[in-house]
Amino acid sequence: MLWKGTIGMTQGLIIKNLSLYHKYEKMTLVNNVSLSIAPSEIVAVVGASGSGKSLLAHSILHLLPEEIEQNCEMLWNGETVNQHNIPQLRGKKIALIPQTIDALDPFLKVGKYLLTLMKGKNKQHRLHKIWSSLGLDIDWLAYFPFELSGGMARRVLIASALVQNPNLILADEPTPGVDADTLSGVLAPFNQMKQEGKSVLFITHDFFAALKVADRIAVMDNGEIIEVSPVSFFAGDGEKLKHTYTKALWQALPQNCFVNNWR
């Protein structure tokens, strides 16, 4: 059940051989990355800063700047995704949780911003529901982005992706600066989505958070995915893991270090 291959999968997102090339710097940024995300699945992409994780999220939405050339085959629920049909998918089917609060219009109150994104009836009611499920105070809807604290901003960004009720969320570093105690609170909406049959691409360098929430973990290094393993493989000394980099990552976690040294 955890090991979902791309073969025969018709629902969800499939990325085949994604390559990103910087035209001016003549540099390959992402090389031959293939990845799939099935419904009810949370796939984490972990890697160091600069390994190409965020580019991955933007390339799925075809939002990379002009100077980056993108080559790949992408399927969404069995249909090819390209420059022409991606605008209909953005936000409504595939939503992005951005990294920083800069992604919100500084001139708009967050509540107003979120309402304009929503369609259909009972907007206010639905927004309040999402808002309080994230533990946000209703009064904060009247705040401007620059008035939010770091932790509030984090959850508002998550709310901005949830309001259009998408099937896939691309979460770009949703947990920086979140301590272990409040981590479960921030991860809760992702688990909720999974229960509703939706999927999450969880991009992070927080390996600990990835292990906590994901079904499968893709390890990215230097623009390539070097390993995709179900989270159950991350156990013991990591003997089930294929790549030495992955093993090193696993063994470097505080609790494992402790175990290793103690032995």
């Binding site: 992005l96 951005p98 920083t100 800069d102 992604a103």
Partner: peptide
């Protein structure tokens, strides 16, 4: 080129409504 425009695009906005709103 600013991040909030990129995000507005990621939310599905484009063309005139993108201009008008953000």
């Amino acid at each position: 080129k600013s991040p909030f425009i990129l995000q507005a695009k990621a939310q599905g906005l484009k063309g005139f409504s993108l201009y008008k709103r953000h």
